[in-house]
Design a binder for these strands. Structure first.
Lengths: 342, 342
DNA sequence: GGAGAGAATGTAATCGTTTTCAACCCAGGG
DNA sequence: CCCTGGGTTGAAAACGATTACATTCTCTCC
């Protein structure tokens, strides 16, 4: 691959000049500019970003670590992040943590070594030495969707309590009394918050969530399947199940189906998160929807501010309950459910 | 951020020694090793990968450009790629093309500048100057899922013709005679292949696909919605619709629903691709399933081989038809649909 | 006791850019 | 005719690692 040196000799100028025409950092006479461009073209010159970054200490890249690439919540988030970052002239590289702290840390380690300009992290459950180090070393970092105790980085996430309590209300108003929850890892804020908000919501109606009825999962489909299996093996089924995120709801739904049970007749199911297909499921899933795209966009704006040296504060946005048919609702509007939340 | 120089002076050794202890490339006495490690720890030293790559010309990174992050086919692919790459000691960075050649090229441009070790591309429709350049410059590159005419890079993809013809058979055997297809962009192999295979399958039964009944979409949900809207505006509906990928099927399904039509009673729907939720849709979707994970794994193996200087040849794997209930099938097995195709 | 081997470490060149500083050229004013 | 001052350009020093080569030191063996 051609270097700036070869271009320079071919164009009969110095490397400084070549650099100048490519960066536009200083004026160059029309003639030499043309010669340089021609030489670059002929040699198929593409500046070496590695060398450039070594010199300038900037990369123009934001790194994003996603909790799980296969989770539609994260991919929609990624999409929004990408849009917003691109609008600001940054490019985004995505990495998959697969809800595994080790994978996450391995990926973060290389991003750090690569001296990325900033980091957007949806932290995996458990704590991470690397993240703590990163923010201690002042790498601009914003946490998305989940918090990490003891790490001093701004967080942007959705406040699930109001909507989750509304869901609890909704369920008891439909006559449900014994409800099981497929909770998320209790080492994550979101996992804890959704569980306690739901429990509190029930408590308002003097219904106590039985310890046996909370199954702690891993925020992944497999966890939802395992938990549902446990539930199905019991002599007495709850009348409804609340899954704390969409992959677990998917897993639960699969198990309920393969057990030959009907929803909501035999058992009801509601979920946190609201991927596009929920409205098309059989029956359409009652869910709590997060302002996913908005989350992504504000995260990028915050990150940009940090890179510019401003100090930024955590932000939390609201969620909303969207009742559909999976909990025994008599009728539900066939909403032309507008996912776009701008 | 501390540099190797600072570590060296602190430990009272030369930079060469520090480098040696971190890379393990040569023996260092026990004493000095300890001193170096201690100094590095105290200074929170993290080697600068940018500098290292400039010198060594390797990055340890594979870049992946995804057609669309929100398409479950691509995310499952990404997951498989990540697993396989990681197993081989590489780390993967993901980028989203959003089915847009410009976004794709912008992303590829930075990967090239970053001197990434190899590239896995699911090319966006249309042609790409950048991709052509990249392979001409011998960047190890393998194309996944889609081909690019005139670009001499190995491709790994699923051969859709057999399964798509089987789908056509299946539909006519269920009594369908007039079928519409929501085709993919005809600038992609997959888009063309799925359409012609379907047309040929129909032709075997002396059924001709009407020109009006093929709506060319963009492989995205919005395209599916638009196409379905067109169809629904016609005086005479086809009895079945075949969507050439899952986002378009999702779009079509939404429109059918909001028009108040029932599947398969009023209209049948089948799709290429088979994301997890298809089995849980109402009714479960008849679909053609690709060996997604296998696609991803072999792509990485091929890329690794190319990086090692071997020459590799294109690979194509098979698909399979999985009939469910969305086309008027009388009964369908409630399969415990095993997505994992290892 | 000196030669030679081998281990441990240091010196300095190198990777491909950007950027500071200096040099040069040429026109115009005094 | 000399001086000043823009406008262009070049030389060379970074940036932070790796690594070929040289050096020093310590043993061992004859």
């Amino acid at each position: 691959m051609a270097t700036i040196n070869e271009v320079a000799t071919r164009a009969g100028v110095s490397v400084a000049t070549v650099s100048r025409v490519h960066s536009g950092s200083a004026r160059v006479s029309h003639d030499t500019r043309d010669r340089v461009l021609a030489a670059a073209e002929e040699l198929r010159y593409h500046p070496n970003g590695v060398a450039r970054s070594l010199r300038t200490a900037v990369t123009g890249i934001f790194g994003v670590v996603l909790g799980d690439v296969r989770n539609p919540f994260f991919t929609e988030l990624a999409r929004a992040i990408d849009d917003e970052a691109r609008a600001g002239g940054h490019v985004v590289v995505l990495g998959n943590a697969d809800e595994d702290p080790e994978r996450q840390d391995a990926y973060l380690q290389v991003l750090r070594e690569r001296r990325i300009d900033g980091l957007l992290i949806c932290p995996a459950p458990g704590d991470s030495r690397v993240i703590a180090d990163l923010v201690a070393d002042r790498t601009p970092t914003v946490l998305v969707d989940r918090d990490i105790p003891g790490v001093d980085a701004p967080v942007v996430r959705a406040d699930s309590v109001a909507a989750t309590r509304a869901l609890a209300d909704h369920l008891v108003s439909l006559g449900h009394r014994r409800i099981a929850v497929l909770a998320g890892p209790q080492s994550t804020v979101t996992g804890r918050e959704r569980l306690t908000a739901f429990r509190d919501g029930l408590a308002e109606h003097r219904i106590e969530l039985q310890p046996d009825d909370v199954l702690v999962g891993d925020f992944r489909q497999e966890g939802g399947e395992r938990a549902m299996d446990q539930l199905l093996a019991r002599p007495q089924l709850p009348s409804a199940v609340f899954a704390a995120d969409n992959p677990m709801a998917l897993g639960a739904l699969r198990r309920i189906r393969s057990a030959g049970l009907r929803i909501p007749h035999d058992i009801s199911l509601a979920s946190f998160d609201d991927p596009a297909w929920f409205a098309l499921a059989d029956p359409p899933m009652t869910a709590v929807s997060q302002p996913t795209a908005e989350l992504g966009r504000t995260a990028v704006r915050m990150l940009r501010a940090m890179v510019d040296g401003e100090t930024v504060r955590s932000v939390t946005l609201g969620c909303r309950l969207v009742p559909r048919g999976s909990c025994g609702e008599k009728t539900y509007a066939m909403e032309d459910h507008d996912k776009e939340d701008r």
